[in-house]
Design a protein around this nucleic acid. Structure first.
Length: 566
RNA sequence: GCGUCUGUAGCUCAGUUGGAUAGAGCGUUAGCUUCCGAAGCUAAAGGUCAGAAGUUCGAAUCUUCUCAGGCGCUCCA
């Protein structure tokens, strides 16, 4: 409809102002009005032309309207100060959309070029259960992957498992402490840093994990470990790494964490990864070595103080970064570069969903991949998701897997259910810092907006079930005239555009807000109208069936199950 | 200090590539059940869109500066 009007305006402009050169450059905009008394669509073209033509915009608007030919499905055109041209669309045009939605399944604009898209999200260190600090990235990432899939791409969802870094050694040490009954032991250098942070893991789950890998831990020399407890922690780590079965023990540890905690946490909100990629594979496959050699060959790195450095400053960054530490260990930066080489070689487009604390790192990695001559502009997207600030008992709390002081995602899901959990995280833009009051979410679950939407569906379902189909006369949609009916029809008309926009922009919040609005209008309608008792129930039922279809489809896109009963 | 995200009602957040009178939920206040589910509906109160300047027919939206907050600036993970 918009396109149609734009074409007609263009024709009129050509007739009227052909002599002005700049006319062709002007982009004609036709948009939805915010107030239905202004019609359905409007254009600001007259105001934009005012400067070029040096004329009063009201006059220009009149000239344009006078030169417009009859446009199909436009029943009235108004001019409003200071120069708006407003179009009123016929009802029959709006009914077409209603009929289309009710007859067809939801169809998204499929992309022309189907791509292999790799989406990496969560990728939390496998050192314990997932907590609500991870929740937002989980849900946003999974939704992003689903959106890409809906518009026709071939999507791989991958969890990158950091199973080879220092944090795994620290977790291993922590399980050994449990195994030896020294759970609360703190190493002499543990609180030396300015933050006074813990380095070992103190959560209660660590004890359970130590039991799971008990057989492996028993191969470790207890006396040796005990003798090292009073030394700096690195001496113990060095010893552990020297044990023959070190890699085997480490692997079993990571495996138990993933199988017993992470996978269960993810499945509680119905998230299933297509693939799990281990950081350690980068070492084993030799890819890491190959990539480092390529970096060296391209003169992108240099050695200083016994460490290997990447030339980040060549790309406008403030300092160079270490790839290989002087003790021979790889930094995350090094393994991440290799991991991304692997992704670039196997996929067309890479999407990373990262926490906002990685924003600097995103620049660093993007520059590195660019230096390796990958087309980062077109093939790499890094989406930064802002942190959710969590409030419990009126106090802001920090999530720390290490201290064991965290609120597991499982607990939240058990309290409010997977759908409310998803809805909460999706209802705000990912760039927005958000406050999550845990007490409120649990206590007020009946006031949760998701139930409001679900309730609309439940009410419609009840009506449809109660309805004696034989009594429904053939409908005449022209009978839908009340304020709420008209508003519902407007919402129905904007459904397809809303979905397309939300999916293309990866903005699930647009869908949650839209569905809320639909539910709100329906509830208002429901309260004022007794549908089954109405003499025009045929058209009313058609209308609410369409509304129901929209709610079901919208929720489906967000992977939320509609509830027929509540 | 540098970088980055954010600042809209008491609280949590929307606000369409710059458009017409600033929008919801929660909370507060006042109402609504002989009738499809009250997990609902109706209404009221509540705003210096952080502040200032600029751009123009027109700014919550764009530019610059200032203020406030989150995050990042390890041979950390």
């Amino acid at each position: 409809m918009k396109e149609h009007i734009i074409i007609e305006i263009n024709k009129a402009l050509k007739k009227l102002y052909e002599s002005y050169n700049d006319i062709n450059k002007i982009n004609i905009e036709v948009n939805k009005t915010t107030d239905s008394s202004h019609g359905d669509l409007y254009t600001n073209i007259a105001m934009r032309l005012a400067k070029i033509l040096k004329k009063n915009p009201m006059l220009i608007a009149k000239e344009i309207v006078n030169h417009l030919e009859n446009i199909i499905d436009v029943e009235k055109i108004d001019i409003a100060s200071p120069g708006y041209i407003n179009f009123f669309i016929t009802k029959s045009n709006k009914f077409q959309e209603l009929n289309r939605i009710i007859k067809n399944n939801l169809i998204f604009d499929k992309v022309k070029n189907r791509k292999n898209i790799h989406v990496e999200y969560v990728s939390a260190n496998p050192t314990g259960p997932l907590h609500i600090g991870h929740g937002r990235g989980m849900i946003v990432g999974d939704t992003t992957a689903r959106f890409m899939s809906l518009i026709g791409h071939n999507v791989t969802r991958q969890y990158y498992v950091n199973d080879a870094g220092r944090q795994i050694d620290l977790l291993l040490i922590s399980t050994i402490l449990c195994h030896l009954g020294k759970k609360d032991h703190i190493f002499s250098d543990e609180r030396d840093d300015s933050e006074g942070r813990l380095v070992t893991y103190k959560g209660s789950y660590v004890n359970d994990v130590s039991k799971l890998i008990k057989n492996n831990l028993e191969n470790i020399d207890k006396e040796k470990v005990l003798s090292l407890l009073d030394n700096p922690i690195d001496e113990l780590i060095t010893y552990i790494k020297s044990i023959d079965s070190y890699l085997k023990i480490r692997k079993s540890l990571v495996n138990e964490i993933i199988e017993n905690y992470i996978k269960k946490d993810l499945s509680s909100v119905n998230i299933n990864f297509d693939s799990w990629f281990n950081e350690s594979d980068l070492y084993e496959s030799g890819l890491l070595k190959t990539v480092l050699k390529k970096i060296d060959d391209s003169n992108l790195s240099y050695t200083m103080d016994g460490a290997l450095w990447f030339r980040n400053t060549s790309f406008g960054e403030d300092k160079d970064r270490v790839l290989i530490k002087s003790n021979g260990d790889m930094t995350y930066f090094a393994t991440d570069i290799a991991y991304h080489v692997h992704k670039f070689e196997n996929h067309d487009i890479l999407i990373n969903i990262w926490g906002a604390d990685h924003h600097d790192y995103a620049v660093r990695l993007t520059n590195a991949m660019k230096a390796l001559e990958y087309d980062v502009e077109n093939r790499l997207q890094i989406h930064l998701v802002q942190f959710a600030n969590l409030i419990m008992s009126g106090k802001s709390i920090s999530m720390s897997t290490r201290s064991g002081d965290f609120y597991p995602i499982q607990d939240l899901v058990n309290e409010i259910g997977p759908d409310a959990t998803k809805y909460f995280y999706l209802t705000k833009k990912k760039e927005q810092h958000l406050e999550f009051d845990v007490d409120l979410a649990i206590k007020k679950n009946k006031n949760n907006p998701i139930y409001y939407i679900q309730y609309a569906h439940a009410r419609i379902t009840k009506i449809i079930n109660d309805l004696d189909n034989a009594s429904v006369e053939k409908d005449n949609l022209d009978n839908l005239n009340t304020k709420n009916e008209i508003e519902l029809i407007e919402l129905i008309n904007s459904f397809q555009n809303t979905m397309d926009k939300a999916i293309n922009m990866i903005r699930p919040d647009i869908i949650t807000n839209y569905l809320y609005k639909v539910a709100q209008t329906f509830h208002s309608y429901y309260a004022e109208t007794k549908i089954i008792a109405s003499s025009t129930k045929g058209e009313k039922v058609t209308l609410i069936k369409c509304v129901d279809k929209i709610i079901i489809s919208g929720l489906e896109v967000l992977d939320i199950k509609p509830m027929d009963r509540m």
